[in-house]
């Protein structure tokens, strides 16, 4: 990546600069006084960019999907967190399972998950996706939790969870993402 110093782009995941360059300190040749330089390890940078553009798959199967829709629309505006909806799994990082999963739907859920590119995350929104919810006891065709089908990162309780709760779930996921180690011996 060839940095255009005038626009202060953050450095890529290459080797970090040798010495910290504090803003306003004597600039090295080529970096004007306008330069904004960020220093950190590569993990920080990668995780930061991942958490800030969580494109989610609009996977609204039932009632919770309406709350998901409203959370993405005028009042709650989830775009603020970099989370925008995508209609296809191939462009999404996050699968927001919002609603009841039935046995007829089960293999579709799995297939959609498999179609998503790595790294991928799953948020299970609402009691139905968590455990089967109100249909746990008496229904013959509801899957008792989406975690029987795919791995889940964050569970959001509620029937349906309020948009605030959903946003909280997304922020929890962002925290999880920030803790991830991508480079180094154990990666």
């Amino acid at each position: 990546m060839s940095p255009d110093p005038a626009h202060g782009q953050p450095p890529g995941p290459g080797p970090p600069p040798a010495a910290p360059l504090a803003h306003g300190s004597a600039p090295s040749p080529g970096l004007g006084p306008e330069a904004h330089v960020m220093v950190g390890n590569a993990d920080l940078f990668v995780n930061w960019s991942r958490k800030s553009s969580l494109w989610y798959l609009l996977f609204a199967t039932a009632c919770c999907g309406i709350e998901l829709m409203q959370a993405g629309a005028s009042r709650y505006d989830m775009d603020r967190f970099g989370a925008v909806f995508r209609a296809t799994p191939r462009q999404s990082d996050l699968m927001l399972v919002a609603g009841t999963i039935t046995h007829k739907m089960a293999d579709r859920v799995k297939r959609l998950y498999d179609q998503m590119p790595e790294p991928k995350y799953v948020i299970s929104m609402g009691s139905c996706a968590n455990t089967g919810g109100p249909f746990y006891k008496d229904s013959y065709c509801v899957v008792k939790g989406v975690d029987l089908l795919i791995p889940v990162d964050v569970y959001i309780p509620g029937c349906p969870p309020r948009p605030e709760a959903l946003i909280d779930g997304i922020m929890s996921l962002q925290k999880i993402i920030m803790r991830k180690k991508n480079f180094g011996a154990k990666a």
Binding site: G99, T102, K104, M105, R108, F135, D138
Partner: peptide, 10 residues
């Protein structure tokens, strides 16, 4: 039927 939750049986 992808959302058939058996409301009538319930």
């Amino acid at each position: 039927g992808y959302l058939h939750r058996g409301l009538e049986k319930i």
